[in-house]
Amino acid sequence: MPRLSYRRALTRALADELARDETVFLLGEDVQVGASLVTTGLAKRFGTERVRDTPLSEQAFTSFATGAALAGLRPVIEFQIPSLLFLVFEQIVNHAHKFPLMTGGQCSVPVTYLVPGSGSRTGWAGQHSDHPYSLFAHVGVVTVVPATPADAYGLLVTAIRHDDPVVVFAPAGAMDVRDDVADLEPVPLGRGRVHRFGDDVTVVAIGHLVHDALAVAEELAGQVSVEVFDPRTLYPFDIDGLTESVARTGRLVVLDDGNRSCGIAAEIIASVVERIRLLAPPRRVTRPDGAVLPFAPALDRAVQPSREQLATAIHLTMKDSS
């Protein structure tokens, strides 16, 4: 079976969609050379009209993409830094997202916002290390955070084909994951995936944290039987799939690289406890409230959710219900 890295899976998805659909085009900063190492080779293969380098004008090129989408194209924007999403939050939310409703269904805005290397990149400090996926789920923009190469491929393809705006977070912590990939295919939005079955507790892990959750589950095997649920799409969320899992285990811990207050972990927990009774109070492991990632590596790590914190949360949840 061919081994594929997460990063190459993204490249493959872009190339396949550019080849399949003439209306797809890519724009962003330094995408022709491929500074992110994701768009490598695409300008050569598809031409600089369809793989466009932009000036550093995030607000203009984000709304340029909205306009192009209104006129029938399917733009994909690559953002160099997750924190740039704050700069274009207005353009995505106020325009791209709101146009279909405000116009009474006269248009669609099929734009994909791809963020390769979201979250901490270790050593890039406060303004390069955010993971603002919860913000997009909050405003109702389709938000995906793939954890594996196959899902990175499948969800990016689906995002490009989707008729509404989609933000694709490709966590820095997952970019170098490699996997044996038999066949690559589109992955449906709003469908989670159980990576490991277990009986005692369901751990919901997002993006690169799926791999941490799997490591902890393995570590605890024999003491606690951990089920690892990867939602893949944060909005719309596969609440049916998660409820089915938690209904079996009776316990819930969420591992989320977002800030704590109003983060997606809170929403996930609320959505489950609205539906079913748990054996123990649910727990979440997140970044702290209002986190700004400090520079020094030890501090950077201290602010991100860790395996130790997850193991502790699992133990406490088990204890609470015994």
């Binding site: 203009a60 709304s63 993409a65 909205t66 306009g67 209104l70 006129a71 194209l73």
Partner: peptide, 17 residues
């Protein structure tokens, strides 16, 4: 100030088509 970039994208896209 929002319409300028949207129209620029729309015109560019229509001309491409």
């Amino acid at each position: 100030g929002a319409s300028g970039a949207i129209i620029t994208g729309a015109v560019w896209a229509r001309r491409r088509q």
